[in-house]
Every structure is written in C-alpha cells, then in structure tokens.
Amino acid sequence: MAPLPPNHEKLERFIHEVLCDLPLRRAPHTLERRVLAALEQRARLSWWRQGFTHWPRPARASFLVSAVAAAGLVTAPGWLTPSTVIAPLADVASHLGWLTTARDLLDTFAATTGIVGQAIPPLWLYGALGVVAALYAALFGLGAAAYRTLTTMR
C-alpha cells in the first residue's frame, strides 16, 4: 500500500485527535425504562408469539413434522407416479358419476380456451404485453417524480 502524502497524514492525525477528544453521549433517561418495559412485555407473550427458539420442545418437534408433511404434499405431484394415484382415483370415480361429468366439463373448457388462445394473433399478444410494460414504466416514473418533488419541497 502506498504511504499517504504528508498532508493527508496531518489531516488524519488532526481529525483523530479531534474525534478522540469527544466524550460519550449520555443515553436518554427513557432508554432504561423502554428496555425493561419491552422485556416485561416479551415475558408476558405467549410462547407461540415468541421466537422459534423460545418454543417448548414438543411444539418445535410438531412444527417440524408438520412442515415436512406440508412440503411432502406440495411436492407430491413430482414424486407420485400415475399408477399410484390415478388408478385408485379412477376406481373411486367409477362409483361417482358426477365426477365424470365434471371431468368432461373441464376438458371442454380447456379445449375451448386452447382454441381461443390459438385464434388470437401473436402480434396482439405482443402488443398487449408492450402496453402493460409501458403502463408499468409510466407509473414507476410518476412515483419517482412525485418522490423527488416531495423530498425537494421538504
């Protein structure tokens, strides 16, 4: 590292002396009361409103088990094979005629949506996307201009 020029060193020494001469600032009288009140309030909080580390051990264990189960459910479509799910469901559906009707309706809806989607020219879609982007940018610019105007006025 290159040494500082003499004038920089002089400035550094000067500022260091000036700053080190500053005494500690007295903490506000309210601080102690605030801390004790906050501690008291925290002590009154129910365990589930405190941090996870303050929870009782059984609650923490149950929470972890529930979290793992929830994660398993969410990721189920990824690891469940059709044979493990669809076959039993089809078996159940065969006993429930209205489920078949509901499935047919959903199929029809999906097919209609697909046809309509294909009928829209791509140019329209790009145009719509462009309009959305332009509106977003305009709103963002308006917000920035308002912020700068208001902070300048303060």
Binding site: R26, A27, H29, L36, A37, L39, E40, R42
Partner: peptide
C-alpha cells in the same frame, strides 16, 4: 449514567432485574 433513577426491582421477566 442515570443514577438519579432508582434501580428497578420488579420481576419484569428477568432472572435478576437489579
């Protein structure tokens, strides 16, 4: 330091508030 305020001795959830 704030020596003019008496030391709090209520429980306030502390093991040793003083």
């Amino acid at each position: 330091m704030n020596d003019d305020i008496p030391v709090q001795t209520s429980s306030s959830g502390l093991t040793d508030p003083v």
